[in-house]
Amino acid sequence: MSRTLIEVKDISKSFGEKNKKVPVLRGLTFNIKADEILCVVGESGCGKTTLGKVLAGLEGYNGGSYLHEKKEVNKLSKKDFKLFRRRVQMIHQDPFASLNPTQNVFTILSAPLYRHKIVKGYQQAVDKVNSLLDLVGLTPVQDFIDKFPHQLSGGQRQRISIARSLTLEPAFLIVDEAVSMIDTSLRISILNNLLEIQNKLKVAYFFITHDLAVANYFAQKGRIAVMYLGKIVEIAPTEEIIGNPRHPYTRALIGAIPEADPEVTRQKERFKLKDSEVPSLQNIPGGCAFHTRCPWAEKPICYEKEVRLTGSGQHKTACHLV
């Protein structure tokens, strides 16, 4: 068994001033092993992107603990934080916004190499950039090395973005909706490329997506966590959560997704919720936050008692009734 890389315990985060605090993360607990894939799925506003930024060290956290290599991240010394920066990298969603339009591929990829003294001199930089481009499948390398972002397609830009995140040889990659803005026909190849990289470099992924189908594909051997209003409502190995969802929210999501198969999608079993409006973060319902939409909700327990993520083994659910 590989060692645990990331330990998150009861982490919370809120934005805004003291009397107008908006809680975005409301106590999440999970671990990520050194070569594991954890997919986080949820609707917009569930806090998945904020969670990604907290894990990336771009945002702080208000409560709980976040251990990276057994060290509390917001208590790292300057030197250790620099090391953390090298070990943890992020891949952004929008390949058109994540690359500086005024820099060519070589400049984009070589700047961090020089900065962190990973290479010495121009020749080493060229060699390293070549191997990175090769790794992300942009071959022949010489066709890409001097291109500017606007000369590349969306998929190629995303690969450059991936290559850049690998420059510092990180162990943990946060991938924020990396394929949602990529053309359908190219998505699988990007996902496959990420999986290949994991195979070669043994990195851990924290993969954020709104698309359960993508999560199901990407985390075939990993786990999926479903988030709702700043909490994890269910977390389990992928096959388990897709095949045997327990939480009503997970069931609703799986049932709601249209599929690219006319008969399946039209006959699919739906799990109907009570009311389709999501409560706002300023006004999160008490008890189990999902009770306003949950068809199973029972008084008084679901309305009053906080839920915790419980369950035996790998499959954990935050629901009073399962």
Partner: peptide, 16 residues
């Protein structure tokens, strides 16, 4: 090229 959940249990064969 489109991943599925229920319909495509076996995800082999997905290609770009």
């Amino acid at each position: 090229a489109v991943p599925k959940i229920v319909a495509g249990k076996g995800e082999e064969g997905l290609t770009s």
